[in-house]
Design a protein around this nucleic acid. Structure first.
Lengths: 266, 266
DNA sequence: CGTTTCCTTGAGTTATCTCAACCCAGGTGG
DNA sequence: CCACCTGGGTTGAGATAACTCAAGGAAACG
């Protein structure tokens, strides 16, 4: 299993990073909560390496000995595991602001593949450690991000283990809507772009694409959501939540509470 | 949903913590890799609060507004989510050394329930932040622990999403053996204590206890493992791995590589 | 030694899978 | 500009892994 891509090295760190190019705006959104502007500058100065992938390429493969930490700046990607006989499980979908490839132990347990063209920032393990030493808040923030990722993984696990096919599909769509809402606000009234194909949804949910298709046609008939091509249209968010078995008001409270939480006490 | 237990506060931090009581030995094993003895002392000094639970009690519930970080010192526990209609998904099993309740956002997405009597150390969010500021290595170590937990969750997800009942059971048993091996070495030749009942295994794997029972009887007939009561007897680790769909040699390489990894570069 | 709790096994049911045909939209080339 | 082709999506019918319900059985406990 070869390493996927060569990394592009930019010119040396430029102290004038406060004039940030467009691709750098993703960093503040998710990572930066609780950080001071000076901290931001230092982090940006450390981001001397990044890389870009086309849709369908892999940043790393299951079994690679990955020593880097990645921050997805732009695009959609997903992480997945593949069994010997080809069965695939999609572990999660990555949207801008997601951090991964963190200093776990041993070799990578999964691969990362892009859904659209993507831009990543790459920190080496050592550079991250230095940054965390200089900026304690960063370490704490990363811990929060990891904890959120864990919560998402758990929610996902509950879906796959204990929900019906229709509930799973509804739940995944709801999650993606909520997450996209935090990022790029949902496009005009309830429509957003999902760069997924049915097999992606199926492999994320432990189903076949036929079953996903049937669940989607059902919800289309019930006028809950319409997913055609890459366009997801939400007709009735409330009933989508109901179909997912989620109490939407609680969920929203949590999402807003979440924002509040992200501000660091100190 | 009430908070589960009252916390017991010990006498103020004692600088002579290098003479550690028995319950404190769990900290070094998993958390302490890469930390200096002085760091250990400071962390121990900050552990002024702990709590003890009997088997079957809960440390916190789904929906609680939990602001603490817990370290399991002794005993077995599990984290789980419950749906409205009572369906339960067990998210993971906790053994001594596991860290959880980390500063995610919003309210707790799951509950923690003990399987045996347990002892936990409790850090408040603020205290942990202070510690991380003082001991940068601690933050990095916690990040590693979280990354390992994520890898376990992903492996678990793949099991539930894409493996057959027998594969799932074999895989879980294998995971528990491997983890216990790192901790309390497996009891005499291939026998260890598992404080689980069949419904726990079933709810962890997205199965019913009957299906788990059938998978276990099958493996018993095949002379792979015997699980009776709380005693797990491994008759043929190689074939257990094969049944789990895992290449054991790779897995072992990884585990040993892992130990190496845990030592921090700096 | 009875009671309780959990494990085991069987037989019928069902959600999801498998396999296969068909459809539709978009792109390409004549 | 239209015919064809291709890569998904859709729908149906039969197969199957796992579920449900139900009846024992064994071990643990008082």
């Amino acid at each position: 299993m070869p390493t996927a891509v060569s990394l592009t090295k930019t010119q040396d760190a430029d102290p004038r990073f406060d004039i940030m190019p467009a691709t750098f705006q993703a960093l503040p959104t998710l990572l930066a909560l609780g950080l001071t502007p000076q901290d931001m500058l230092r982090i940006n100065a450390a981001r001397s390496t990044f890389c870009t992938l086309e849709a369908g390429e892999s940043l790393y493969y299951q079994g690679d000995d990955c020593r880097n930490i990645y921050l997805l700046l732009d695009g959609w990607a997903f992480r997945h595991q593949i069994l010997e006989d080809g069965r695939r499980q999609i572990l999660d979908f990555a949207v801008p602001g997601v951090v991964f490839g963190l200093p776990g132990s041993g070799t990578m347990s999964h691969s990362l593949e892009t859904l659209t063209s993507c831009t990543f920032t790459v920190f080496t393990r050592e550079r991250l450690f230095d940054l965390m030493r200089d900026i304690p808040t960063l370490g704490f923030r990363l811990l929060e991000i990891m904890a959120d990722a864990e919560a998402r993984a758990f929610e996902h696990l509950t879906s796959v283990g204990r929900r019906t096919a229709k509930e799973r599909v509804a739940h995944l769509l709801l999650e993606l809507v909520m997450r996209a809402h935090g990022q790029t606000p949902v496009l005009r009234q309830g429509t957003m772009v999902l760069p997924l194909m049915l097999p992606h949804i199926a492999d994320a949910l432990g189903l076949t694409s036929e079953t996903v298709c049937r669940a989607l046609s059902l919800m289309r008939k019930e006028r809950i959501v319409i997913l055609r091509g890459q366009k997801l249209e939400i007709l009735d968010l409330k009933r989508l939540a109901a179909a997912a078995g989620v109490d939407l008001s609680t969920e929203l409270d949590q999402a807003t509470g979440r924002r509040g939480d992200l501000r660091l006490a100190s």
